[in-house]
Nucleic acid binder design. Sequence first.
RNA 1: GCCGAUGUGGCGGAAUUGGUAGACGCGCUGGAUUCAAAAUCCAGUUCCUUCGGGAGUGGGGGUUCGAUUCCCCCCGUCGGUACCA
Length: 940
Amino acid sequence: MEYQAREIEQKWRKNWETQGTYQVSNKSDRPKYYVLDMFPYPSGAGLHVGHPLGYIASDIFARYKRLQGFNVLHPMGYDSFGLPAEQYAIQTGIHPAIATEENINRYRQQLENLGFSFDWSREVRTSDPSYYRWTQWIFQQLFKSYFDQHVGQALPIADLVARLEKNGNAGLQAVCDEATPTISAADWTAMDERARELFLLNYRLTFPEESYVNWCPALGTVLSNDEVKDGVSERGGYPVERKLMAQWSMRITAYADRLLEGLDQLDWPHSLKEQQRNWIGRSQGASVKFPLVKDAQRQIEVFTTRVDTIYGVSFMVLAPEHELVDLITTAAHRAEVDEYRTWAASRSEVERMAEVKRVTGAFTGAYCVNPANGEAVPIYIADYVLAGYGTGAVMAVPSGDQRDWNFATHFGLPIIPILDAQQNLSQEADATKEGRYINSGIINGLNYEEAVPTLTAWLEEKGMGKGKIQYRLRNAVFSRQRYWGEPVPVYWKDDVPYLIAESDLPLVLPAVDKYLPTETGEPPLGRAENWKYQGKYDYELSTMPGWAGSSWYWYRYMDPQNSDRFVGEEAVNYWQGVDLYIGGSEHAVGHLLYSRFWNHFLYDLGLVPQQEYATRLINQGMIQGVIEYIHLIKAEEGDLTRTFVSADKLGDFPQAEFALIPVHVDFVQDYGKEESYLDAAGLAQFKTWRPDYATANFVTNAAGQLVTKSEVGKMSKRYFNVVNPDDVIARYGADAFRMYEMFLGPLEQAKPWNTNSINGVSRFLNSFWRLFYQNEQWLVTDEAPAREEQKVLHTAIKKVTEDVERFSFNTCVSAFMVATNELGRLKSHKRAVLEPLLVLMAPFAVHLTEELWEKLGHTTSIHHAAWPTLEEQWLVEDHITYPIAINGKTRITVDFPAASTKTELEKAAPALEDIQKYLEGVTVRKVIVVPGRMINIVVG
RNA sequence: GCCGAUGUGGCGGAAUUGGUAGACGCGCUGGAUUCAAAAUCCAGUUCCUUCGGGAGUGGGGGUUCGAUUCCCCCCGUCGGUACCA
């Protein structure tokens, strides 16, 4: 019987489904283990060969743990709200739910093709009302909570109210808006309901606020910082501008410290933790007040990490949006300042970032007082100071900061040296902390370590400053002016937001006639007819962002049907959290930070048992594609001729400029290689595919080939280089595909997709099969295996167990190959060897092993078998082959009895006949013996 | 600029605590089988070589009996991030 991948795979997939082989119970005597894959967004394009890499790895590990005797939770579901389905709906009028459903079905089919051990009875979809009901519920809990810094956790807002009634907010240590006024108990009591609600918004963990946001006109929505890359939207690459808008916000900054500290306990990739640390951006420094010369009651507060440089301040810079600008600008400078502010506001993020080097700014005409030395400091505005960071104001020290130096040089402001070690101040700033202070009042002669505490204490005493910790992390914008997302479970009364009753959840997404903003510019939900809470109050019209539903989904898998709670207590206490999370590093500062934030919050409420939900995380590397381009001569205006030139003939057109046009990789010969090209057939395919170029000229080389330019890059529709796993599976089978993806290299490393060597894996599976079957002949016998055969088996058990534990799956595959080669050489077909080997390979080649397992006479699934036990006795040798080196260079290898002692070997090695010729004319200085390893003879 | 990864044959990669560099696979070369092809099997395959050997893990230096592995400096590639005060 030949190995027939397709038949076997279909047979077992059906069988597993009817048997419920992968169904998991929340009750078990076995220890639990939770393996989670990152939530996929079901895009219309379906899976390409890069997507399954992490899923295959997690599936192997889940299966391994199952064979090891664990009760393993390994679920899959869909992050099914999102922009692409809505963009599609706008174009076609098809409800996003319908397109999403189709995409999900396609995904499901592709995933099933790969033979994963998901418990599909636990599938969840974020766009399902039974799911987003709980996303809305968690939102409501955030609204009902504030963060108390005294206890370092979230508490019910009712506690805050009780406190306000008693003491007002004096002495309250809680995270709130900068502008929150201080009130007494009497003030609170005097407030009416509306005033109280507005006041409480300063503290709630989710709240509407007016702030500068990333507005993307093309998408018609705001975006959070992590959704903006290089000044354009991550999805679609549309321009983004700064805009002042009222938006729901999440007070993630309350958790900045805990999110930072929590990282230390996580077994996550180092670089990913670093990214989160940088994103949170904790910096220690001081806040200092600079009173205005004209009005000492008003002060400009700055944050600085170098308070020691305060005597070097020669000017002050405010962000153009800073609230004091209007107030302080003198009449003489009014026009200039207004002009600058208008100009600054008109600049897009992209422009700003492109012109970082350019110095711009304007003088307000006003001065403030340096509290350290009482000198007057001119106040400028400039857009290198960001309104959103710190206080939106900087004390400028040109001698110690390059941007300040550039600004000072441009505007002719003084550059004051402050440390005797500073150098070349006429050329550039010197940020050194070395040396002793000069020109620096009370810290003259001190060094950095002495100056900082001295100054901070002095400023604090004078009430002009204090030590402060500042974060780069901003509160997260939580509104999207879009249709296809969770409705925010809030209604408005007197311009104040109220939660809808818990019993009214879920607030279901209403039908709309179009998925576009209303004529008055409201979000699409404004189109819903008669959509009012209790028939009279307006609902919030924005929806939640993509990351809402994915911030808690791993809990829903534990208990997906529960209609009383987002996850049942029993279920969450059993599964606790995720033991292994596998996914891409692109989620480092988005999903992985937001989900940690929500988890910390749920933990504070006592709803989940662990502060960090995923203790171990592994990034799988991206599988890249090869992009094939052909060179098109850039035509002059009006010139309608189109000429493509073979890459090896570009020299014939020295004056031409070329555009690179991506070509469908299927047309290209020797795809992925240096000398890949389009032959005549490829050119014909290209012309049919791109009729607009059907009449173009093609300058080919002597062989009639149009040589392409090949580049490793993203696998994406727009490069026409997407490889569908279904095609590969149809040809080689899912088992070969799974093993091949693992065999490509280390899991975490990025690697280009190349089908060149998949036949090696396919060949291996065939020879493995032939250990059982050859020429229609069943070969397996019940004879006792020889020692040598046992050694092959147990070497494999040891290697594969160790390697799976450290996620080195590529070396597992080669271990299987080695074992198969050896057993083939030994003509070994013993059940006692093959059966354990089959179990060892079951997590990788899930169908093939199941088939052979059945043929061996088993009636239950191999995936419920037990992982083989290593018996060291078979690995013990009576002789050890020692490499013998002279001065570190290996010369020969010699067998010695394993029992030889170090002293014996030291004597025996130099006496060997084969080694004598190396010792002529030199003296043996030392013989180094590492028992079991090697022998080195040092001569000289 | 800063932060983080990474660099080994023609190619993907292995070498887990410093101990035979190149496992395993692809490709390539030769052979067997075949009318032929596919498939399969066997042998070889880092480079140089006067066949004794010599060189060799991005480059240079160091520690060590011994370095792909540890330390210092430099270079390349990839990813993240950026007027963050």
